[in-house]
């Protein structure tokens, strides 16, 4: 079943098309990472799905229910970007009040459990106005999950947090994933998206350029594989025949005394090279295969 489905979803502000006819499908139980530069339209897209902004055209469905629909809001948790909190309300009251607004009022113990998950249990009775930026961010995440929603939208959940808090939030997201929740998150931290998300969507100029798993994106963006092999010294006579053969198998060969680097078209070629070195009785110490990182893919887009 699909957790999110958009059809030709668009948003314009006057004549400025911020989101352009997006078709996207997110399966239930997925963590979808939404990437894009500042101004790409990520937050506008999330804001349409969560009811903050009305779409200009197109349609969307959340958890199988055509939106906008208030009934489905009970099953949705949203951590909006740049959210400020109620300064005069304590962390505990925030969770109890907002869960009540959702129509799923939680007990004090449940609210405390959620505060513990985000590391705010010691500040449960402290007013949010006195919180640091990082604490506010954690409370914003807590309010998004307190009512046990099925679909969670997190807009840059870890930006501005210290390393320890980032790990804590990553663990929390993975735990929610294990519970079968669908998570739709945006982030500027490419390592985080690569590590946590099961699929990634890259947005540019209001359009989704590419969606897929990390392997699918790599396969799409990489036409050649760069292989570095560290080996035992090669005799000059062997080298005289091996080097021309390697030049035929791959491209951009760079020979050094202890290793060589070569670009090949497929993984089968790697096996072919290993077999060839074996026939010359040359020991192979290490094989490094260079795959494009998400950062390289992102920059390419």
């Amino acid at each position: 079943m699909l957790a999110i489905e958009t059809k030709q979803l668009s948003k314009s502000f006057w004549k400025n098309n911020v989101v352009k006819q997006i078709d996207l499908q997110v399966e239930k139980g997925e963590i979808l990472g939404f990437l894009g530069r500042n101004g790409a339209g990520k937050s506008t897209f999330i804001n349409m799905l969560t009811g903050i902004l009305p779409p200009s055209s197109g349609s969307y469905a959340l958890l199988g229910v055509q939106g906008p629909n208030n009934a489905v809001k009970k099953e949705i948790g949203v951590m909006p970007d740049y959210s400020s909190l109620y300064g005069s309300m304590t962390a505990l009251k925030h969770l109890r009040y907002l869960s009540e607004v959702s129509g799923k009022k939680v007990s004090q113990s449940r609210a405390m459990d959620v505060l513990q998950l985000v590391g705010l249990e010691a500040h449960a009775n402290k007013k949010a106005g006195k919180f640091s930026f990082g604490m506010k961010k954690k409370l914003a995440i807590a309010q998004a999950i307190v009512h046990d929603p099925q679909l969670i939208f997190l807009d840059e959940p870890t930006s501005g947090l210290d390393a320890e808090s980032v790990i804590q939030i990553h663990r929390l997201i993975q735990r929610l994933h294990q519970q079968g929740k669908t998570i739709f998150m945006t982030s500027h931290n490419l390592d985080e998206v690569e590590k946590i998300c099961s699929r990634i969507a890259i947005m540019k100029d209001g359009k989704i350029r590419r969606v897929g798993t990390m392997d699918e994106l790599r396969a799409y963006y990489q036409s050649t594989i760069t292989v570095t092999m560290k080996h035992a010294p090669i005799a000059a006579t062997d080298l005289a025949t091996l080097e021309p053969w390697l030049k035929q198998v791959g491209a951009q060969l760079e020979m050094e005394a202890s290793h060589f680097t070569i670009q090949v078209e497929s993984e089968q070629k790697i096996a072919e090279i290993i077999r060839a070195l074996g026939s010359y009785k040359i020991d192979i110490y290490r094989v490094d295969v260079d795959e494009p990182s998400l950062e390289e893919i992102f920059l390419e887009e």
Partner: peptide, 11 residues
């Protein structure tokens, strides 16, 4: 922007 907490939860 606290209104965002409300509009995402209720009508």
């Amino acid at each position: 922007r606290t209104i965002r907490f409300l509009v995402t939860r209720t009508s």
